[in-house]
Design a protein around this nucleic acid. Structure first.
Lengths: 122, 122
DNA sequence: AATCTATATGCCCAGATCGGCATATAGATC
DNA sequence: GATCTATATGCCGATCTGGGCATATAGATT
């Protein structure tokens, strides 16, 4: 994989946060919104950016777009993602993201992953 | 150290080549010119860029400027430099740089490090 | 088909970046 | 002090970037 793409992808903090928080498993945009607390348009754009460069894969499930790290990343990408994870350990912001992600964990597997799980019928 | 600085520094190929080729030891600008085959102005600018962000240190020795990796890099920087080294192993361009660097190695310790060692008095 | 929800895109602006070319500077040497 | 060598810097143009705001689209639901 092209180092240019990788380092370009890592060149923005929002994108680094996305990649970091994606390590434990796939997420959809509304999760990113909840975890990173970043406006939706911005997220979509950065996700498109990452996707265009192969740092992330996307799959549509019904109304939701599920983003994930590539199943078989190149050596280079894998190395850099690992490096990012290590660096993140010392960064408060990344840790906060992670905390919010964990708090969200239970809903992740739900068939209706997003939104405040509006209880059944209104 | 600020991740922004690090990843910004790594965001350009010329700079990555500089950092890569600096791993074995300090170099001065004319070495970079010989090894990377890049116009001098461009090199100076990228070196200034790296220096301003603390990815590289510089020391004047007579007429020459000696650039080196920081003596005590932060965890983050160290991790990323290591990662870069690993990535470089698969990149032909980086390998060519390294080859030229090795061919240059004998002159590195000379008191007159640069230029084609114009033999003593002309 | 109207509507709702989740996500993507277009437009615009401000600022950063990179490269080339020419030129300036610092220090050594004559 | 004139000159040479090694390096740095200024200016310019082209390109990219990131953000906000508004709006478009895709699919689900009624």
């Amino acid at each position: 994989m092209d180092l240019d793409q990788i380092y370009a992808g890592l060149g923005d903090e929002t994108r680094r946060r996305v990649l970091h928080v994606l390590a434990p498993g796939p997420l959809c945009v509304c999760h990113f919104q909840a975890v990173l607390r970043v406006p939706q348009a911005r997220l979509s754009k950065h996700l498109a950016y990452l996707r265009a460069r192969g740092l992330v894969t996307a799959e549509r499930r019904g109304n939701w777009m599920i983003y994930a790290l590539p199943a078989a990343p190149s050596r280079e990408l894998a190395a850099n993602l690992a490096c990012l994870q290590e660096c993140a350990r010392a960064q408060p912001r990344f840790q906060r993201d992670l905390a919010r992600l964990r708090r969200l964990a239970p809903t992740l597997a739900a068939p209706r992953p997003c939104g405040p799980a509006r209880p059944a019928a209104r």
